[in-house]
Amino acid sequence: MYSLLFEKLKEVVGAVAPLVAVVCILLFVMISAPLAIVAQFLAGSALVIIGMVLLFAGLDIGVLPMGRFIGAELPKLGSIALVIAVGFAMGFATTVAEPDVLVLASQVDATSNGSIREHVVLYVIALGVAIFVGLAMARIIFGFSVRLMLSLAYGTVIALSFFTPVEFVALSYDAGSVTTGVLTAPVVIALAIGLSSVLAGRSAIADGFGLLGFASIGPIIAVMIMGIILA
C-alpha cells in the first residue's frame, strides 16, 4: 500500500511540478503577486497533489479491477441485453460523477444566468455517454466494424451541426471532451477490456480500446439535440 502511494506521489508530483513552476514564475517575476496569494496557490497545489494521489491509488486498487471483473463475468450470465444495460448504467453513473462534467455543467448554468440549468446539462451529457457505451458493448459482442460506427456517428454530428444553434455547437464539443475524464475513462476502458478478454476471437487491444473515443461522441449529439429542442 505504501509503495503504491509513493509511486503515485512521484507520478503526480512529476505531472504537477511544471504547472506549479510556471505559475510561480508568473507570480514572482511578471506579476509581483502578494505573498498571501502565492501561499494560497501553494497550499491549494499541495491539496491537489494529495487528492490526485489518493484518487489514482483508489482507481488502481478498486475501480480498475472492478471494471475488468464485471466485464469478464457479464458474458457468463448469457444475456446480451444485460451486458448492454450494464454498459449503459456504468456510462451514465460514471459521467454524472465525473468532476470535469460537473464543472462544465455549473459553468453553463452560471454563464447562461440559469436559463440552461446545471442538472439538465449534466443528465443530457450522461445520457449521451450511456447510450454510446451501450452501443460500444454491442459492438464488442457482435463484432461490428468500428470504422463504420465512427463514420456514422461523426456523420450524424456533422449533419446536426447545420441545424444546431451556434452556442450549442460549441458547447457540444466541450461536452464530448470532458467525458474522457479521470473517472469515466478508467471505468469504461476496464469494462470493455474485461468483456473483450473473455469473448472468443476478440482482441483486447482492438475491441477494448477506441470505446472511449466512440462514447465521447454521444454527448456531442445529445447536446446538439438539446440545443435544437430549446431553440
Rank of each mutant, 00 (worst) to 15 (best):
G128F: 03
A36K: 13
S161Y: 01
S151I: 06
A57E: 10
H119M: 13
L191P: 00
A190F: 11
L9K: 09
I221K: 07
L199K: 04
F92C: 03
Q40W: 13
M224K: 06
G201C: 12
A130V: 07
A175M: 05
G128M: 01
V124M: 06
V53F: 04
L77H: 01
G181F: 00
L212M: 14
E7R: 15
D207R: 06
L135E: 04
T156G: 13
I116P: 05
L135P: 05
L148P: 03
P18D: 00
M1E: 08
A85Y: 10
V121C: 05
L9I: 10
G201M: 08
F214V: 09
T94C: 14
F88Q: 03
I50N: 08
A36S: 15
I25P: 06
L230C: 03
F144A: 13
V53K: 07
I217R: 04
L104R: 02
V157P: 07
A93N: 09
V12L: 03
F88R: 05
D109Y: 08
S216V: 08
G227W: 03
V182H: 03
V121A: 00
G44E: 02
A15T: 10
V108P: 09
V96R: 07
I217K: 02
M1P: 02
A36R: 13
L59I: 15
V53W: 03
V63Q: 08
A36Y: 11
V20Y: 06
A200Q: 14
G143M: 04
A81D: 12
L27R: 09
S145D: 08
T180F: 01
A200F: 13
T164W: 04
G62D: 11
G176Q: 00
M52H: 11
V53S: 06
V124H: 07
A153L: 07
A97P: 12
V146R: 09
A81E: 09
V120T: 13
V178I: 09
E7P: 03
G181L: 00
M52I: 02
A93P: 12
V188L: 14
I229E: 03
Y173F: 15
A17E: 02
L27E: 13
V166P: 01
D109V: 00
P34F: 05
L102T: 12
T95S: 14
G51C: 04
R139V: 00
A192L: 07
